[in-house]
Computed example of a mutant assay.
Amino acid sequence: MASARRPHLCLGLRRRAVGARDNHRGWPLPQAGASWPLGGGALQALTPSPGHDTLPADCPYPVSHCSKGGDMVRTYRLGVIGFAHMHVNHLLDQFAKLPNVEWVACADTVPAVPSRSSLPGTRLFNLKRAQEVTGIPKVYEDYREMLEKERFDAIIFCPENARHGEVAEAVAEKGIHMLTEKPMAASLSEALRMARAVRANGVALMVNWPTTWSPAIRAMKRLIEEGVIGEVWEVKWRNGASMGPLSYSDPQPSDAEKGAEWWHQAAQGGGALLDYCCYGACLARWFIGERAVAAVGMRANLRSHYGDADDNAVITVRFPSALAVLEATWTTWNSGVPTGPIVYGSRWTLVTDQKVVEVY
């Protein structure tokens, strides 16, 4: 008879805000998601933390106003470009909690196919929410016109994945720092386009990876670094149960409404591979600590024929001393078993459900 599955060690983790520190000054980053600066450390400390409640004398950023005590405190003028990705809502909510943020204006990108729905998660819903909930006062039809007419310290942009390069380049050329949502881009060439733009203009680009804010994920990284499980030789990632990005509203959108959204359009960077395999790619690189040397993948549209983007995908990645298996799905009602990430080491194995980390 098989023995019962019992972990050697179980770490219960309560949900809490997890801080990160920028590598320029050590000031706290806003609690919007894990992000790493490509072009410098300028997008840091939208609000001072205890011990950093005034700006240092050599701070390179201009001061917008003074506090009651006369100390200089920075106010940041923020704007938004693109409401295609519903994660924009969470980013705006997090920045809206900060006391020194001034919302200036926003603009959506023009979709290749007009939206047919305004249900939660759609771009029409997201844009309306930015006005009514976040309170962004101005809405432009053209984001380039907005960049010409308004003054910003930073831009949050969440357009279609395939348009990240275009938007980042336009923002960088105006000397504005920026934050975007994962994945960084829909292709390597577009990601390199973004990197060149921010470096050429001396601005910061930050990419939000929500999983890396997870206390469970951070606990896994700590256990790996402490050598608890020995040498990592494989990382497995599969997103949890999901029926696609627009499947959680009530009422449900029709197939025609789903097909009109960029998520289900391959040319716009839609599909499950870019939506979910990117998480595993990020975590595998972080956990293993090496650059990948080879990868092979397969994707398919199995159940979502109202669009031409994939709804399931698998990538197998070779690192110098390890493997990674990355799976993405938009057609799974119930995952049945823990989907991880799961990290196999030479001594022990780590498994998490994003709430608890178990060591076997």
Rank of each mutant, 00 (worst) to 15 (best):
L274M: 08
G82V: 05
W333Q: 10
W27M: 14
P210V: 10
A57F: 04
R5Y: 10
E141F: 04
A107S: 03
E173A: 14
T339R: 14
T212A: 13
V356E: 04
I155P: 09
Y276G: 07
H164F: 01
L13Y: 13
A197R: 09
S321I: 09
V88Q: 14
F83Y: 04
H85A: 15
G12T: 08
A154C: 07
A112D: 10
E226G: 04
A105M: 08
N201A: 10
S321W: 00
S247H: 08
A107Y: 06
A328M: 02
N312R: 15
R123I: 13
E225H: 02
C10T: 08
V325A: 05
D308P: 07
R291Q: 10
A45Q: 11
K174F: 11
Y279I: 14
W348F: 15
A172R: 02
S242R: 11
Q268V: 14
L127Y: 01
I176L: 05
L55D: 14
V314Q: 13
K68D: 06
R291V: 05
W209Q: 15
D308W: 04
A272I: 09
N334Q: 13
T211S: 14
Y344H: 10
K149V: 12
P7A: 15
R222E: 11
W36L: 15
Y248Q: 14
G26H: 09
W333S: 12
G39L: 00
F287G: 01
C278N: 14
E225Y: 11
Y61K: 05
T211K: 15
V293K: 02
A17P: 02
N301M: 01
L46M: 13
W286P: 02
A170Y: 08
D58G: 03
R218F: 04
K182Y: 01
R318K: 15
H65F: 02
V73A: 11
K174E: 13
D71G: 08
A84L: 03
L205V: 04
R116Q: 03
I156K: 01
A260I: 04
D353I: 00
W213Q: 07
T329P: 06
I156W: 02
G121T: 00
V337I: 07
A241E: 02
Q354Y: 11
S247M: 00
R218Q: 05
A107E: 02
G230N: 09
P215F: 00
M1T: 01
G270D: 09
A281R: 14
A45S: 13
V198I: 08
T180W: 01
A195T: 12
D153C: 00
A107M: 00
V359W: 12
V357Q: 08
V80A: 14
G39K: 10
Q31H: 12
D153A: 09
E141T: 11
L188I: 12
C278P: 02
I229D: 03
D58F: 00
G271M: 03
A57H: 03
L124W: 01
Y143R: 03
T47Y: 08
P111K: 10
D308L: 08
V232W: 04
V325F: 11
G70T: 11
H65E: 00
V356G: 00
V296N: 15
T122L: 01
I156F: 08
E169I: 13
K236T: 12
K221G: 01
L205Q: 08
G12K: 13
L188S: 10
L350V: 08
G202F: 03
A300F: 04
I224G: 08
R347W: 03
W237I: 13
E150P: 11
E358R: 02
A172C: 09
N334F: 13
V88S: 09
A256M: 07
G41N: 07
D250K: 06
A328L: 08
A2M: 10
